[in-house]
Design a binder for these strands. Structure first.
Lengths: 236, 236
DNA sequence: TAGTGGTCTAGACCACTGA
DNA sequence: CAGTGGTCTAGACCACTAT
């Protein structure tokens, strides 16, 4: 008597499983049928069911364990993908004109916070670059970057006065691991000078460290203009 | 003469392709061989190659288009997955004792910013909850939440004085879409009172909106204690 | 229209893990 | 040891899109 719906594609199956989770047909914490049973019910290959369930597990809706089977997650963790894009792209996507200005470039010993965060050897020196990103001529963000000297042989010969170090690094130095920390700070001297902010202005600070294997690559702190909001959407 | 390496698994192939991207064997912007060719080279089924390339594309290393083929991405976008976990879990993972205190609960008309952000009808009313999350008795974060009245029939009968609205919602009201906005603000009256902050203190503010289909579910603003850092790691 | 990725199938074997 | 998910295969057809 049941109308035989077609579940031919893994997307269809994903949607149906998600519907059953949402409608509490399958309740949080409970096991759901095994792949072979679902394949039979949906009239498709197990591979197809597998693909759908794998995605749902990846998105945090299901928890899968060998031998134990698949369960509905108790607390679907809100995973949000932040795309830390290149600032030039970010500005151009807003139809703004991008500008870049190098403020400082020197080789020095990084502060301990940087050393510690990246795992640099004490006393090691690195290239320090400070730059301002502009949108339509107005300050958009400033960055304070430390680049390890051994990431590339020709690092010190590169002209960073025209192009952002970030873009050069992305195109020339690979990385395997990254960490992002977001915090809220008051404008310091540098920020006050280049972001037209006064000392009481709260700013968003992004600290990003990258490594290539175990090798530290770069550490950069970014401060955005006052009022900036970091936005990310997610849907399922 | 070439030693024949085995590339049996999609992870192996993923690693090898990534290696070729990193070593600039395949340069940014350039096309890479098509799936069938790679399958032949690696001595495996095309399905396996497909799975590896699909993942690399998902991670931003490759750009794939039908008919055009696969290219190495010009700017591997730094995608970072932020796990916006339940605050209780976050605190317990730090081996702290979690505490929760409801400060206010009323039905009212949300401010325009909330209405606008969620897409609520003008004049609609919603449940407003203000609460403090404590770690070891100290204020950790405060939240100001608006919950749409029609998300559940029994919403107004739920006792939110013991359990956080977030956890109740997660377990009882599904959502399909979420948005997260992060900004830096000065402590307002509410924050000063419950976070022991003075007016000049910069705080991290997270605004999270969720919808179920086109139906708004909830809007919550979270303010973390001074000095809080939101951290996320990613690797490939 | 032709070429590429996207997906499905049916079957097989492997890997982990609880009993 | 047995049951479940994890993955591979070889082949097939479909979907999109530049030409």
């Amino acid at each position: 008597m049941n109308e035989q719906t077609d579940f031919n594609t893994w997307q269809t199956i994903e949607a149906e499983v998600l519907r059953r989770i949402r409608t509490r047909t399958w309740k949080p914490g409970e096991p759901i049928p095994k792949e072979t049973d679902l394949a039979q019910e949906f009239g498709c290959a197990r591979t197809t069911v597998n693909r759908a369930l794998r995605k749902l597990a990846q998105d945090g809706f299901l928890e899968r364990k060998r031998r134990l089977g698949t369960r509905v997650a108790l607390h679907p963790v809100g995973k949000t993908v932040l795309e830390v894009s290149i600032i030039r792209q970010e500005i151009e996507e807003k139809n703004g004109t991008y500008g870049y200005r190098l403020v400082q470039s020197k080789v020095a010993q990084p502060p301990n916070t940087v050393n510690f965060g990246l795992g640099l050897k004490d006393g090691a020196r690195a290239l320090n670059l400070q730059a301002v990103h502009l949108m339509d001529g107005l300050p958009y963000a400033i960055e304070d970057r430390w680049v390890c000297l051994d990431v590339a042989d020709d690092l010190l010969t590169v002209d960073f006065s025209k192009h952002s170090a970030n873009e050069w690094l992305l195109e020339n130095v690979p990385y395997t691991k990254a960490q992002l920390a977001i915090s809220s700070v008051q404008a310091g001297k540098l920020q006050q000078e280049y972001l037209n902010a006064d000392a009481a202005t709260p700013l968003l600070q992004l600290d990003r460290s990258t490594w290539n294997g175990d090798q530290p690559v770069t550490f950069v702190s970014l401060w955005y203009h006052s009022g900036y909001r970091l936005i990310s959407q997610s849907s399922s």
